[in-house]
Amino acid sequence: MAPTLRMGMVGMGNAGLAFISAIQNHPDFEWVAFVEPHETTKVTYETRWGVKGYTDLSAMLASELLDVVCIASPTEHHTRQALEAIAAGLHVLVEKPMAVTLEDARTMVRAASDHGVILLVGHSHSYDMPILKMREVVASGRLGAVRMAHNWCFTDWIYRPRRPDELSASSGGGVTLRQGSHQFDILRLVCGGRVRSVRARTYDWDRTRPAIGAHCVYLDFEDGAVATAVYNGYGGFQTSELVEGLSEWGFPQPARGWDVKRRGQIASNSQDELRAKQERAGKVIPDHAPFHPFFGITVVSCEGGDIRQSPQGLRLYTAEGVEEIVYATDRSPRELVLDELAGAIHGRVAAVHDGGWGMANLEICLAAISSSERATEIFLNEQRAVPL
């Protein structure tokens, strides 16, 4: 039996807190420490979970025996913290987007290779069970080659409580970097990975909330497949209306109607907004849900039929009719992240979402922004195929 992997967590916001239950329940991992720079919050979490907290990464690395560091801090800190953990000989799981710039991402990938450690990038919604199963259907060849794939998502993202860096593209913020990361990961996984070029338009149309809040992105793949990623985070129509009333995390929406934040409903100043974000931490992403997560609506068109997600799994549309394929909902997406991480560390599987995959995903995010600014098609250099 492989030894238990001792994990330290960096960052205890929504992204970090969402992993705690998955780590505690996973047979391959033990959560032993965390980093939280705010002393009061650190003490609160130490009391709640009985796990030692530190106010900075260096102190945790010096004091704890670790195998893995999970980095769930703001994006602008990812590269520095990942390099520090890698230099200590530790494997790294880093949230998406993995870095702010492609050069930072390359530095992270090179460092992991030089030190012989695993660098994994996640969570993204390409870890959702239905998306993984879509890839299996495509790879089986049952429906022939993929010709088109689409992910469309309409939410209130731009009006949820945010730190300033979450709205600034130069710090890894805005819809294209933070939510497009999910979309491009999904589309690359089901279409094979190798995107040839990107053509996009990004939008910032609320002067009271300056940020990239929407985009329309066209991906042209090397093998002739095409894909679109549409995201509108301005709080009008919700794609949950198209996916049987289910939320991003697999819960039915309230019967009274969609609980949507719109223009004018955000906090009146940055301190109130930060306080609202802190109060929201840990309440947004559930451990388990009655249905599978729905990150918008994903439809894949193959030569022999179409695939889309259903609440229970997948629906296949072919000449023979509609086939429902049911998958259990007992594993959360973050447990599936940990499955891949442990499998890669112990040599059981080749990681799909490794540093090179994450860098290719970041390249698309940055290319979409550049395409919009320059009104031109952007050709890519860092793309890679899905490992067989």
Rank of each mutant, 00 (worst) to 15 (best):
A2G: 12
L5Q: 05
R6C: 03
R6I: 02
G8R: 00
M9L: 10
M12E: 01
G16T: 01
A18K: 04
F19C: 12
A22L: 04
H26M: 05
H26Y: 07
E30D: 12
W31R: 04
A33D: 00
A33H: 02
T40Q: 14
V43K: 14
T47Q: 15
G53D: 01
M60V: 01
E64V: 01
E64M: 04
L66M: 06
D67N: 11
V68C: 03
C70R: 13
H77D: 12
Q81P: 03
Q81I: 01
A82V: 02
E84S: 14
A85D: 02
G89T: 06
V92A: 01
V92E: 00
L93P: 04
L93D: 06
K96T: 01
P97Q: 07
A99C: 08
A99K: 00
L102Y: 10
E103Q: 13
A105G: 05
M108L: 08
D114M: 09
D114Y: 09
D114S: 11
H115V: 11
G116F: 05
G122K: 03
H123K: 12
H125G: 05
Y127G: 08
M129A: 13
L132H: 10
V138S: 03
A139I: 07
G141Y: 04
M148H: 14
N151S: 09
N151M: 05
C153I: 11
Y159K: 06
R160W: 11
R162Q: 15
E166I: 03
G173K: 01
H182E: 05
R188L: 06
L189G: 07
G192L: 04
G193D: 05
R194D: 13
R194P: 08
V195T: 07
S197G: 06
R201V: 10
I212N: 07
H215D: 03
H215M: 08
C216S: 15
A227R: 00
G235R: 02
T239Q: 00
L242E: 07
V243I: 12
E248H: 11
G250Q: 02
F251G: 09
Q253R: 15
G257N: 05
Q265T: 11
I266Q: 14
N269E: 10
D272T: 11
R275Q: 13
Q278H: 13
Q278P: 05
V284A: 12
H288Y: 14
F291A: 11
H292V: 07
I297T: 14
T298R: 05
T298D: 05
S301W: 11
E303Y: 05
G305W: 03
G305C: 03
Q309A: 10
G313M: 05
E320K: 12
V326Q: 11
D330Y: 08
R334V: 06
E335V: 07
L336S: 10
L336R: 15
L338Y: 06
D339T: 07
I345K: 09
H346E: 14
R348Q: 15
G356V: 08
G356S: 13
N361D: 12
E363R: 06
S370H: 13
S372F: 00
E377C: 09
F379M: 12
L380K: 08
Q383H: 11
P387E: 12
